[in-house]
Amino acid sequence: MSKLTLHVETDPMTFKQPLRIAGHIFTGIPAVRVRLEGGGIVGRGEASGVYYTGDTLDHMLSVLEDYRAFIEDGPDRESLRHIMPAGGARNAIDAALWERESLGQGIPVWKLAGLSPPVPLVTTFTLSADPPAQMLRQLESYAGARAIKLKLDGDFEADRERIRLVRQHRPGIWFMVDANQGYRVESLDALLPTLVEAEVSLLEQPVPRGGEAGLEYIRSPVPIAADESLLGLEDMAGLVGRFQVANIKLDKCGGLTEALAMQALARKVGLGVMVGNMAGSSLAAAPAFLLGQRCDFVDLDGPAFIATDMPDPVSYRDGRIHCPPTLWGMPNLA
């Protein structure tokens, strides 16, 4: 362990346009950005927290100050997992430690993590739960998309219309919907025929966290992904028999280190794996992009939503997210 200096700053992370989901309208999601300096090496990380757990910007800043002495003592990533609580603050520090290790050893992060050289990934592009005309305008802007994710708002008739319109206007595209806890188990049977008719491939988090047990009695022809029901490793066992896919987000679980362990456990218990993000700049997307190399589904369009990104950002071409090797960690330019 070597002594480090922690620098913390914030970014309002304003969106280009509001994002509407069940129960919320976001005009942006503030982020915390950290730098860990020591020995001539700087590691960086970014996090936006988890709005439904109370992991707000103020909370992340408070956690970073509470653990400042521990962080500046230079812990390794496993010590970080066991000492700091899961959430955005730990995610940002975990990313900074990965980058420091990568730069210090002269090895790209993907190689440190035991991954194959990363490749561009097909990602979903998100449609807000807006009125139909506005939603269709946004859909038109995704001309190159290969996969679409539609946010639902829990209004059954409005959601059915949105679903049908997306499939009507993009007949061949891979299509999923995200209910963000907006439905109850007893109302799912009415929604499922519309999903089948529209050839929806994945239904994300239809019921509130805490109501997962009711899914044991649902025979959905559409696979169901857990998002809010899955925060960290401790939630994984409870998904079996209720969900078919685990959506892993670094801000929820507290960083790439735990996320990789979650991915391995999901495979072991027979679940598909998805990587997602709610918001964030390209710096936040870079560690998730590496996790995405081992996932079945990728939802990493967050940087496309923000008004101002960082230099050398991720890019979106041919429906894929491309992450430049110089963005985060030791670049592998061979």
Rank of each mutant, 00 (worst) to 15 (best):
S2M: 14
K3G: 10
K16C: 05
R20M: 06
I21M: 05
A22D: 03
H24W: 12
G28L: 13
V32M: 07
R33C: 06
E37K: 06
G38N: 04
G40I: 00
R44N: 10
G45S: 02
S48C: 12
G49W: 05
G49R: 05
M60V: 00
M60W: 01
M60N: 03
S62V: 00
V63E: 07
V63F: 00
L64R: 09
Y67D: 08
A69N: 09
A69Y: 02
G74S: 07
R81N: 12
R81C: 13
A86K: 12
E101Q: 15
E101W: 05
G106Q: 09
L115N: 09
P118T: 03
S128G: 05
S128K: 02
M135D: 01
L136W: 01
L136V: 08
L136R: 06
R137A: 12
Q138V: 03
A145P: 03
A147L: 03
K149F: 01
L152Q: 05
F156H: 04
E161W: 01
L165Y: 03
V166P: 01
R170Q: 04
M176Y: 01
M176E: 07
D178R: 02
L195C: 11
V200D: 02
S201R: 13
L202Y: 12
E204P: 08
V207Y: 04
P208Q: 04
R209S: 08
G210D: 10
I218K: 07
E234Y: 08
D235P: 06
A237K: 10
R242S: 11
Q244E: 15
Q244G: 14
N247A: 10
C253I: 14
L265G: 01
A266F: 05
K268Y: 09
G270Q: 13
C295W: 08
F297R: 12
T308S: 13
S315K: 14
H322P: 01
H322Y: 11
C323W: 07
N332G: 15
A334R: 15
